[in-house]
């Protein structure tokens, strides 16, 4: 456990050191959302109708943007080999890196989302659901992304490959995340979608670190 927390702390310190990366993710999120009113038109009814989808797709793309930083710097400077050799089980080490990635990208996205919800005229009553769905959904995105990031270590054109692998697997969180907000907006019950999001998170939490560890091992072999 101390090794796990130590690794999380180290990665967070590194993320803080390069805080430009997190800022870039947030800026990308803001800019993507702001682009939609230009494309769709400023009518509040239309925007409110598509707001859940816009917010979720933008958050998903922003989370994708920083995925290649999860393992690549450590792979390039050799720290990943030391992590593999350390006494910490590799599954836990992978989980630590994924947690650190989520704290430095997914969590800030969820926290600033209410500000952007105002821009696209999301109904104020749906804002708590937006934040909850992002808090439940973005860890799943980081977990799935961690597997893909580890698989593509050392590949040519890692960025493009990463998005090709990850985007199809991001469909379920997107469907349920946007579905929960829409249910709240249209007077339905968002609980079913939120529970499914939580189920996805539980499944990914159990499987993804293990798969990411296997991928890291074959990359450093």
């Amino acid at each position: 456990m101390p090794g796990f927390l130590g690794l999380v702390r180290r990665d967070l310190q590194l993320a803080l050191h390069h805080s430009g990366d997190t800022a870039l993710v947030l800026a990308f999120f803001v800019l993507t959302v702001v682009l939609f009113p230009f494309g769709i038109g400023p009518e509040p009814d239309v925007l409110a109708r598509v707001a859940p989808g816009i917010l979720w797709v933008a958050a998903l793309l922003a989370a994708l943007l920083s995925l290649d930083r999860m393992f690549l710097p450590d792979y390039e400077d050799g720290s990943l080999d030391l992590i593999v050799l350390s006494r910490l089980p590799l599954g836990l080490a992978a989980l630590a890196k994924i947690v650190a990635h989520w704290i430095s990208s997914g969590l800030p996205l969820a926290l600033i989302s209410p500000a952007l919800a105002v821009v696209v005229d999301l109904e104020p009553g749906a804002m708590p659901i937006l934040v909850i769905s992002l808090l439940l959904g973005t860890p799943t995105l980081s977990l799935i992304g961690g597997v893909a990031a580890a698989l593509t270590l050392g590949a040519r054109r890692q960025g493009v490959l990463l998005s090709l692998l990850v985007l199809p697997l991001y469909v379920p969180p997107l469907v349920f995340g946007a579905g929960a907000i829409e249910a709240q907006e249209t007077g339905g019950d968002p609980r079913a979608d939120l529970l499914l999001l939580a189920a996805l998170l539980a499944a990914a939490l159990a499987l993804a670190p293990w798969a990411a560890a296997a991928a890291v091992r074959q990359a450093t072999e």
């Binding site: 698989l151 050392g154 590949a155 040519r156 054109r157 074959q218």
Partner: peptide, 15 residues
């Protein structure tokens, strides 16, 4: 794409 994405074919197959 992943299988063909590495310079070393063995790595691509394993990934």
């Amino acid at each position: 794409a992943l299988v063909n994405g590495f310079d070393d074919p063995a790595r691509g197959s394993r990934a």
